[in-house]
């Protein structure tokens, strides 16, 4: 554990909680892609199956359970409790175009051809692109609520911090995991355009809106 890793995990946790609270407090999931949230629930489910097979630390177990629990709670709020506010007409990204190629890639490029390892690899690849339906929704509506942009910022910063964590671990522990690193770089790059808008607009007190 180093400072980048811890900060990354906390940023990830903050993102998840910001989104849950936003939906809960406003009683609305307008502007949120349910498809991205289903993908994140799938990511956590396939990645954390090792909860059943190995114990790493109390921290590790606690965070995994919280991430999974919050992911399903978010999906529940969007598709059940506040279904009437769900922006289905704009949330039209075809997720099969992500899940199918990612599933194929996980079979082809992995560390070990075993069920748990393939599912872990699948989750890493899927996480790197799971935000695309959300970014697509924002590009379609042309705007995002400020609280939604805070969510996206924390979520993007999380993987960027993990990149620093991996650099740290490579230098000080000789550890590297090529699958996680490449997927993490892809994931972070997908947020760059958003980071630019966040810094130039949201942090200056303006609403995030895209030119028509």
């Amino acid at each position: 554990m180093n400072i980048f890793r811890l900060a990354g995990d906390l940023s990830h946790l903050a993102a998840i909680i910001i989104l849950l609270l936003k939906i809960w407090k406003t009683r609305s999931c307008a502007g949120i892609s349910g498809k991205s949230q289903i993908l994140f629930a799938l990511v956590f489910t396939t990645r954390y199956l090792d909860l059943l097979t190995s114990f790493i630390s109390l921290y590790n177990t606690f965070m995994k359970v919280v991430y999974i629990g919050c992911a399903y709670a978010t999906v529940y709020l969007i598709y059940m409790k506040f279904k009437a506010t769900y922006d289905g007409n704009h949330d039209t990204f075809r997720v099969e175009f992500l899940v199918v190629p990612v599933g194929g890639l996980a079979f082809l490029v992995n560390h070990d051809f075993s069920p748990l390892e393939i599912l872990w690899t699948f989750s890493i690849y899927l996480e790197s692109v799971a935000i695309l339906p959300q970014l697509f929704l924002i590009s379609k509506t042309g705007e995002a609520e400020t609280i939604t942009t805070h969510y996206l910022f924390c979520l993007g910063v999380y993987r960027a911090l993990y990149l620093f964590n991996w650099i740290w671990r490579f230098y000080f522990e000789g550890f590297f995991d090529m699958i996680a690193i490449v997927a993490g770089v892809v994931q972070t790059i997908l947020y760059c355009d958003f980071f630019y808008l966040y810094v130039t607009k949201v942090l200056k007190g303006k609403k995030l809106s895209l030119p028509a």
């Binding site: 890793r5 990645r47 090792d50 190995s54 965070m63 560390h111 070990d112 872990w120 964590n165 590297f176």
Partner: peptide, 10 residues
């Protein structure tokens, strides 16, 4: 190529 590692990262 690196081998599978125990997954301590989230």
């Amino acid at each position: 190529e690196d081998d599978a590692q125990p997954k301590d990262e989230l």
